[in-house]
């Protein structure tokens, strides 16, 4: 049941001379939600971005160690980063729809990957919007600008956009930090449903959110992963003093 989707082995990561991740090893389980928690600057977002090589875009970065996705090393020579990112989608903190129509936002990815058939695109757009629990709210105005819908809707649109290229994994970097509680609840419920088809890794600053939505939680501190395990255990009975101090707010 607990199939390893991503295996991270002895991962080190550097921004020039600064070592941002120190010897991280963990297995991310398929079709589960894994939450990454820790104080600002602990490396959790850096870690998240190593999973689809988003850090490659930053100059002066260096990676050591292995990240195996379905057993294949994503940092191996010859890996097509575009293909990788198709397989490992990402949603960011601030909703960032393209300044295009709702339809075009979702169709953008499939088009970029060579799908041109109009019926096929329509179908993908509808399915993606349905999966992102947004279809009913926007189906009558697909041609309107994506910038005209609410922040919560924009964020779900970004999720739909990510889903449109059929990824296996969805990375989410504080996806609800800019949203109100109702929009947050919708995204959280959505994640709960998406788990059936996707493996989700989420960075969150809200401990309660991690507790509510995730199956596994990893606690990062100063570039190290201090503790990783089932969320229930981490929040009821953390093994490490540092984890306990952090989740109970006695940090620092």
């Amino acid at each position: 049941m607990s199939k390893k989707k991503i295996e991270i082995k002895n991962l080190d990561f550097y921004y020039n001379d600064f070592q941002a991740l120190k010897n991280i090893s963990l297995d991310i389980v398929a079709n589960q939600v894994t939450a990454l928690i820790g104080p600002s600057g602990c490396g959790k977002s850096t870690f998240l971005r190593t999973l689809n090589r988003m850090n490659d875009l930053i100059e002066g970065t260096k990676v050591d160690g292995d990240i195996l996705l379905d057993g294949e090393n994503i940092y191996a020579k010859g890996v097509d980063v575009v293909d990788l990112r198709k397989q490992v989608g990402m949603v960011f903190q601030e909703p960032n729809p393209f300044p295009k129509s709702i339809y075009e936002n979702v169709a953008y990815g499939p088009k970029a990957h060579g799908i041109t058939d109009k019926d096929r695109l329509d179908q993908i757009v509808e399915q993606s919007l349905r999966d992102a629990a947004l279809w009913d709210e926007v189906k009558d105005r697909l041609d309107r600008s994506a910038l005209g819908i609410s922040g919560g809707q924009q964020q779900r649109l970004c999720i739909a956009r990510a889903l449109a290229v059929k990824p296996d994994i969805l990375l989410m970097d504080e996806p609800t930090s800019a949203l109100d509680p109702i929009a947050t609840a919708k995204i959280e419920e959505l994640m709960d449903n998406l788990r059936e088809d996707y493996t989700i890794v989420i960075v969150t600053h809200s401990m309660q959110q991690a507790a509510r939505i995730s199956d596994y939680t990893a606690f990062f501190l100063m570039g190290e992963m201090i503790e990783y395990g089932p969320t229930e255990r981490i929040f009821e009975k953390p093994e490490h003093k540092k984890t306990e101090d952090y989740i109970t707010g006695r940090f620092g």
Binding site: A211, F235, E236, I247, T248
Partner: peptide, 9 residues
């Protein structure tokens, strides 16, 4: 306060 871990216990 939404306590967790030992606080909650």
């Amino acid at each position: 306060q939404q306590p967790v871990a030992r606080d909650l216990r």
